[in-house]
Structures are given as C-alpha cells and as structure tokens.
Design a protein around this nucleic acid. Sequence first.
DNA 1: ACGTTTACCTACAACGTTGTAAACGCGTCG
DNA 2: CGACGCGTTTACAACGTTGTAGGTAAACGT
Lengths: 344, 344
Amino acid sequence: MNGDFMAATLHDVARIAGVSIKTVSNVINDYPHIRPTTKQRVLDAIAELDYRPNLSARSLRSGRTGVIGLAVPELSLSYFAELADAVIRSAERHGVTVLIEQTGGDRAREIELLTSPRRQLTDGLIFSALGMDSDDSEYLRVGYPLVLLGERIFGGPTDHVTMRNVDAARAATEHLIALGRRRIAVIGAHEGEVIGSAGLRLRGYREALEAAGIPFDPALIGYTTLWHRSNGADAMRALLASGVEFDAVFGLNDTLTLGAMRVLQEAGLRIPKDVAAIGFDDLDEAQYSLPTLTTIDPGREEIAETAVRVLLERIASTDLALPPREILADFRIVERESTAPAAA
Amino acid sequence: MNGDFMAATLHDVARIAGVSIKTVSNVINDYPHIRPTTKQRVLDAIAELDYRPNLSARSLRSGRTGVIGLAVPELSLSYFAELADAVIRSAERHGVTVLIEQTGGDRAREIELLTSPRRQLTDGLIFSALGMDSDDSEYLRVGYPLVLLGERIFGGPTDHVTMRNVDAARAATEHLIALGRRRIAVIGAHEGEVIGSAGLRLRGYREALEAAGIPFDPALIGYTTLWHRSNGADAMRALLASGVEFDAVFGLNDTLTLGAMRVLQEAGLRIPKDVAAIGFDDLDEAQYSLPTLTTIDPGREEIAETAVRVLLERIASTDLALPPREILADFRIVERESTAPAAA
DNA sequence: ACGTTTACCTACAACGTTGTAAACGCGTCG
DNA sequence: CGACGCGTTTACAACGTTGTAGGTAAACGT
C-alpha cells in the first residue's frame, strides 16, 4: 500500500495548510494565540497527511524524550513484575512510556546503570535499588530526576517512595500474636542488617514482641541470602531440623513464605492449625496458594503511582533546589486462610 | 560537583583533539581509514571530556534508535514476566534496549499499538498477540520490522517465533498415559478455538488420546475464558461438581494447573496418587508448589533469544522482500512430583 | 616524470523540531 | 494622528549527529 512511504513533516503540513512550519508547531503544542480558522486549516492538513511529530527531532531540540526509565532487579521476581505492571499503567495515564532495565540486584550494575548512556533515552529514572546501600548514596547525586524505591538507602539526595516496613511488619506480627501464637518464627532475615527490607521488617517483628511482652528468641530467626522460593524452603528446613518449637511463621516476603509453607506441609504440619503463616507483598499468587496466604499489602499500586507522579513533577520543575521528599505508602493486612482462627 | 554541567559534544572533542567533528564521528563509528595517532588523540579527548554521543541527534540523523519494543499482554502474568526478563537479557547481549508495552490482551489496544507514535521510539517490535486473530493479520503489515510471538496468527506477513504447541501437548498427554492414566481432564480449553494456544494444545491432547486408542470424552474438558489461577480453580470446581471421573489433569498452562491443584487438594484428592497433574510453561513457581509440578518447558529462553536475533537481522537488513520466517522452539518435559509414578 | 589510485581528513548540508526575535495588521489611547 | 499594545504569524537559528562530496598528500603504476 505504501511501501516507500515517507513520513510527513511539519513542512508538508505547513505547505498544505498554507502557513509557516512554526504555526503548525504552535498548533501541535497548544500555543494559545492562533486564529481558530488557521488552527482548523492546520488540523485538517495534519489529519489529511496523518502527520506524526518526529520524536527524535523533538527530543533533540527540546531535550525531553517522553520516556521514563524503571530499573528493577529482575522481572521474574513476581514482586517486581507486579510493580513494573503498575508503573507502566500509571505512566500510560500520564502519557509517558517506560523503558525497563534489569540490574540483577547487583551493586556494580546498579551504579553503572545510573550513568549509562541509556539515561539519555529517558527524562528520569525510577530506581529500585537492591545491591547498593546507604554508603553508596552519593552515587544517587545524578544530573537527572531520580526517584528511589526500596529500603536500602534512606536520607539520600533524591526523592524516595517506600513502604512502612517497620509498622507493617509489626502489624503482621501483632496479627499472629492476636491469634494466641507466642513462638513466631521469621523467615528471610539478613545477618546483621539494620536498614533494608529484611532489617526493617525484623525490627517491626521485635517491636511487636516487646510490646506483647514476649521474649525475643534468636533460635526462631531463619536467615537467607536471597528471597526466592527456594530460600524460604531451605530456611524452613533448617528451622525444622534445629528442633526449635514454633506455632507461627512470619515470612519477610510472600515468595519466601510460600516456599516455607511447602516445607511445613511436607513435614506434616497443618497451616494454620499447627503453624499460622503470614507473608509480605500481597502477590497475586497469595490468593491461590493452599492455604491462601495472609499477607501485607504494602501499597504497591500507590507506590507506583506516587513514584511516577513525583518523577514527572521533578522533570517538569525548574527548581532544582527542591528538597528531596520521602513518601510512605499505606499498608494493610489482607487476611486469608493461613491465619484463620482455629476452626475445630 | 557538576551541577550546571553541559554534556560534551563532537565539537568539544574535535576542538580538543585538533581535528574536525567528522573525524571524531568516524572514530566513534569505527571508520577504518584513520591514522592511529589521530585516532589516539581523539580517543584521549573523548576520555578527557567523558564524551557520550547524543542519542537523539544520532537517531534523528540516522533513523535508528537502538531500542526495540516488546508488547505483551500483562507483566503480572508470570509467563510474560519471565519472557520479558529473557528478552531484556537477550537484547542487552546484543547492545540494544527494550521498551515494554502492555496491551492487556485487548484486540483494539493491540491494533492501536502497532501504529502508535511510540513506534518511532523503537527500531522494531516483538509482539506477543493475544487479542488479535488470523483475520487481523493484515494489521501486521506495518512499515517497520516486526516479529510475532504467540499462537494467535499463523501465516501472517511477518517473522513468527513460536513453540511446538501440538507436539508438546501431545507429549504431555502421552506422559500421563504412560503412567497408566486413562481419564485425563483438561483445564483451560477455549470453546470452538482451533488456532491459539488453547486450540493447538487441545489438539495435541486429542492426538495423543487417539494414538493410544482412548476415546475422547467432552465431559472431561474444562473451559475457561482466561488463564489466571482463579480460572483454573473455577474450572476444576465445575469439573468436580459435574461428578465426572478422572485420574489425571492436563492444565493448558501452569497457572491454571496450580489453581486447579489447589481445588483438588481442598477436595481431599491426592496428587499424584488420585489425580496426576501436568502443566505447560515451566514457570519458576512450578518447582516450588506442593507437589512440585511436572510441566512443559516450551523453550522460552530460546524464543526470546531467537525473537531478538531475528528482529535485529530484519532491522539490519536492507532486503525488504526477505520472506517471512516461522521458527519453532524446542520443548521438553520437566518431570516433577505431580506425575511421579505411584509410590505406595 | 606524470597521471592515477589510495589513505586520510574536512567542509557543508541535512535530519525535523522548537525557541527567539521580530514583523505585521489592527484597534486603542493620549 | 502617531505611539502603543496586543493578537497572530513568520524567518531564522539552533539542537548534535552522520552522509556526501571533495580535497590534499603520499604511494603507485607505467
């Protein structure tokens, strides 16, 4: 139909409409002072030629691309897939496109990515850090708008959208305590970590114990390096092998918890009767496991929406000195079978 | 450190190196005829200024962006998240970036996306169609390199990378038959569909039955509209309610199968003892379910790698008349507990 | 020794857009 | 009536890159 078709340019439209290219440009950019008749002629010409602005030219001239970057550790981790989904949908509502990068959670790649030439393709970056920590926060002092996600770095030089890890973990633990559980195991702790998802959530756990007057027992803490299913399964196996007694488990994320639940059930323990379980993330999967998993909805949708909004505000703002903001999303407990009160 | 930093341009490099901008450009683009001493001076200047080519300018001038698009229904569906992961990693190996779009599996949005202005941001598109069907194949006749994934459209005008649905489904069914199962239920069929993942996989199922001399029983087929976990659970509930007897279930994808398995277990049926189960996709999750799920690895990595390679070949090729290719990835059965031979 | 190739390098234009400055016509004000 | 302001439009330059065409030596062939 149009094999050797050349895309129409402003010049073509201008010629057809009998105006200058700048007037066409003005129409496209909603410049106010245009005579309605002129505007209509231009719009007609645009429609006739099916004109589309050349985005490369526009971005060369204006310095804006209309694309934002999203850097996550791995899309095959459900949490980040669902986060990316939410960010893309949110970006779409705001009329921008998302370019996704995977860091593998590797510190070196994260740092490299911050100054990668690809940053030129985007007007700003939503960056979910996993490998970097607070010592690296100077690397975040980049020359473009950057919104940080995650809980590896606090008090950095950029806007930061995150969740109420401590409060939510405390609420999760209190939920188990309210069921009458006293021996609450944790799966997914990181040795010595204070900041970071694991550290913060463990802190919430300890706060809840303390408030309830339950002594903290280090034997109940299952450490893992990563938060994949297999890590949860391994940690639970280790816990069972250790012989320590427990009547509930708080998995620091859903994936870990589901892995741990599998091992519990293999060992013949019933959930929630023998061991109640609660996770963190509210993955889609948590509503279809056996039993369905009680978990914390950390406000992922809100985080995505806020991150996009804040980033676009930064991009639009001329005020570079605007102080960095830290925004916390609301969480809620999603109650399901894995913490159902004893039936029989 | 460099707040009001202006990025260096070819001009800056040229000035420092004492050559013309074109020579700098030539160095960057590996033009062969450059005196080694000159080249070194240019490289030194580039290093000194930390020069990075301006991608917008380059793409305006050259018509190439170095970005490829990937359109999938939804990242929150694990299959597509894992596919996107593989595509991104593969693209990275080839030095290009991936821009992801979500269609929601909606036909209208899929069609719209094919001519969206965003296509300008990409040199080509890897398109996983779900809503469109063979009647829509003319929409695929677009002015840019396009590689089709999925099994909704065959014999279209573009390159097509897909999996051996019929063969793989047949192998899955044969695997169940080899266990001695004769009453094999299917979860996830689509009413009246011939082409499409559901239709093709159902055909493989029927071929296997026929080869084994087992009559096809329509009562064993569970229909669903979508392939989410809840659909698998619902279909299995319907099957159980119908009272039909079966000793195995072939879920047309893993997600469906996991949903169905949950319902089976709730109903007190043991897997694989009472009912063996096999899925399709080899999601990460399949190795951590209870029991672990035997499934078909449809060659997702190979599909991603091939799609990227074929797309880049199209982009690089000047020969527009190159006939469309259809490439099928290899599959294999991944045996796990859900089809383990009767132990006790 | 002289035309011809070859290696190397450069000037200039062009890609399609938007910002700047200024021009134009027209009504208004002093 | 001339200066001015305002709404509307335009010419021109610029963004940073690569393609084209060409130029200058040195190397080559005869």
